[in-house]
Design a protein around this nucleic acid. Sequence first.
DNA 1: TATTCACATGATTTTGAAAACATAGAATGC
DNA 2: GCATTCTATGTTTTCAAAATCATGTGAATA
Lengths: 147, 147
Amino acid sequence: MFSKSCEYAIRAVVFVATQNNAGNKLGIMEICKEIDAPQHFTAKILQSLSHNGIISSQKGPSGGFYLNKTQTRLKLIDVVRALDGDKTFTGCGLGLKNCSEKKQCPIHNQFKVVRDELLNMLSNTYVVQLAEEIEKGSAVLSNISGR
Amino acid sequence: MFSKSCEYAIRAVVFVATQNNAGNKLGIMEICKEIDAPQHFTAKILQSLSHNGIISSQKGPSGGFYLNKTQTRLKLIDVVRALDGDKTFTGCGLGLKNCSEKKQCPIHNQFKVVRDELLNMLSNTYVVQLAEEIEKGSAVLSNISGR
DNA sequence: TATTCACATGATTTTGAAAACATAGAATGC
DNA sequence: GCATTCTATGTTTTCAAAATCATGTGAATA
């Protein structure tokens, strides 16, 4: 459904949101360890997100990634769009490059319903809301058992 | 969403269904040309489908792929399951290997709604019904313009 | 029964996303 | 200003899906 980049990004952003209270910033190593993601790869992803204004970053000692006031209102759709673009919501279900309303694949309309449901879900889900789930302990962000 | 294999498979199966009337069988070349898919790769996919009883095949002169009586009642879900397995409907949206009802990722419930919608759609869509769209001219199976 | 045709099968190559590596650059704190 | 700590960037490597290649096998028919 999503690219690996996008999966790691969502997990990372949600984790950052859980720790964003006291205004403390999170380093790459800390984030990757918690969400069980490859360090260098995830670093690039977060840098890309930072570049796109999805999250904020601070260099130097005691620096790291964090969310500014505006960014705490982040939705999942923002993260997905920044990394995977619109192709998740516009691409043809059967891989036809020219598939459109005018010249459509046979499952075009049926598929549209599913994609709209996805788009709707991502548009109505806030990152902070997911962070709360983690804080409450009703959800996890890592593969590693016991965390 | 689906693997390339699955995309080619659906397109191929729908095309076979459109030509299944007079009991004539379709060769690989004919199929690949029509749906604009790589020949050898698609051959393997169809052979796999044939192996799984999704479609039928006949060797020798005037042989090819076709649907027998039972197979004309094929649903999309059958094709997807045969090639991509259940991971399309069960895999975690955030890529967590251990994600389950008990230990779930933060978007588990939201994602479930979308996946169920997809599962529902695939379970209620018949291949012959899609073939009719093609025959009517209200949908296409190829990237190539003008076909 | 030999030839031809078309699917079947296994090995190999290609491709691109994913991941790792190496190095540069910038900010903080002392 | 200098060391430390972190982000930024470009290159290389890895790996599995995707695609190809080469050869085998069964069926039709003359």
